[in-house]
Design a protein around this nucleic acid. Structure first.
Lengths: 136, 136
DNA sequence: TTCTTGACTTGGACTCTGTCCATCGTAGGA
DNA sequence: TCCTACGATGGACAGAGTCCAAGTCAAGAA
C-alpha cells in the first residue's frame, strides 16, 4: 500500500489527504468497491471529501494502471486494486459479490486469427456468473 | 426473423406494431445496438414509439432468451439478437464496434473447482478488447 | 520558515441511461 | 362488432458519472 503511494509520488503525483484516503480504502484482497462505496468509506475518515474527488482519483489510478475498472453488471463500475496480477472475476448473480479467480488457459490464445477480424487484440476479460453459497 | 415473431406469438406474446418494429430493428448479424439506437431506428419507421416501450420490449426479449444484453463498456448496454448460438465479443477500444467471435476452448471448463469458492457457476462471458482496423 | 503557484478539491449543475406510473389505446378472443 | 386485459405513452424520477468556476493547499523556491 505504502508502495503504491511511493510509486505514485515517484510519478509526480501530488500527495493529498484525499488521495491517500482513497488509496487506503482500496487496499486489500478481493476488494471490488463501487465509486459510491469508496466515497462512503473515504468519508468515514475524511468527512469533507467530495464525490468529484473520488471519481477523479479513481480515474487517475486506473489511468496509471494501479487499479482496474470492472463492469460486473449494468450498474456502477467496480474498482479492483489487484492490478498487477492477471486474474478474472466470479460474480454472484444474487448479491453481486465478486471474487478474483485464476482460470487455467489463456483466453487470448484461444481466439484464432480468423476470428479477429483484423483487430489488434490486446486483452481478454472473463466474467464467470453464478450463485454464491449464501444465495444458492 | 418471422421465426422470432412466430415463436413469441406461440408464447402468448401480443403482437403490436411497436414490438414488431423493435424485433425488426434487431434483425441481422453482428447487431449490437444500444437501447437509444434501437429507439432511433424504430422511431424512423414508427415515429410515435416511446422510449419506455423500447425498454420494455427489450427487457421482455431478454427475459424470453431471444436477445442478449451485453455490457461492453461502462455506458449503455447493448442488445444482441444472436442469442441461440454461443459466442463471445470482440470490442474496439477506439470506436466501440462489436463483433461476435467464437474462441476455441470453453472458459467454464477452465475454472478449477478450488477457484470456484463454492459458487454454482452457470456461465462465462468473455470480452476481447483491442483496436479495429480503422482505429489502429 | 515563509512565500508562491499551479495542481487539487469542492459542490452544485448537468448529462446519460434506465425505471416507474397513471392514463390512454388496441389486439384479438367471444 | 364489442370488450377488456394487456400494452403503449410520456413525463417524472433515480442512479451513475462528468463538468466547471471558484477556493484551497502541497511542495519547491527563496
Amino acid at each position: 500500500m505504502s508502495d503504491l503511494l511511493e510509486r505514485l509520488r515517484a510519478q509526480g503525483w501530488r500527495l493529498t489527504a484525499q488521495r491517500r484516503v482513497v488509496a487506503e480504502v482500496l487496499d486489500g484482497d478481493h476488494v471490488h468497491l463501487t465509486a459510491e462505496e469508496v466515497h462512503a468509506r473515504a468519508a468515514a475518515r475524511l468527512p469533507e471529501i467530495s464525490r468529484a474527488t473520488v471519481y477523479n482519483t479513481l480515474g487517475e489510478l486506473v489511468g496509471l494502471g494501479e487499479v482496474l475498472e470492472v463492469a460486473t453488471d449494468g450498474r456502477a463500475k467496480r474498482y479492483d486494486p489487484n492490478a498487477h496480477q492477471p486474474h478474472h472475476h466470479l460474480v454472484c448473480s444474487g448479491c453481486g459479490t465478486v471474487r478474483d479467480v485464476h482460470p487455467t488457459g489463456d483466453p487470448l490464445a484461444e481466439l484464432p486469427p480468423r476470428e479477429r477480424y483484423g483487430f489488434q487484440v490486446a486483452e481478454a476479460e472473463v466474467i464467470y456468473r453464478g450463485l454464491c453459497p449464501s444465495c444458492a
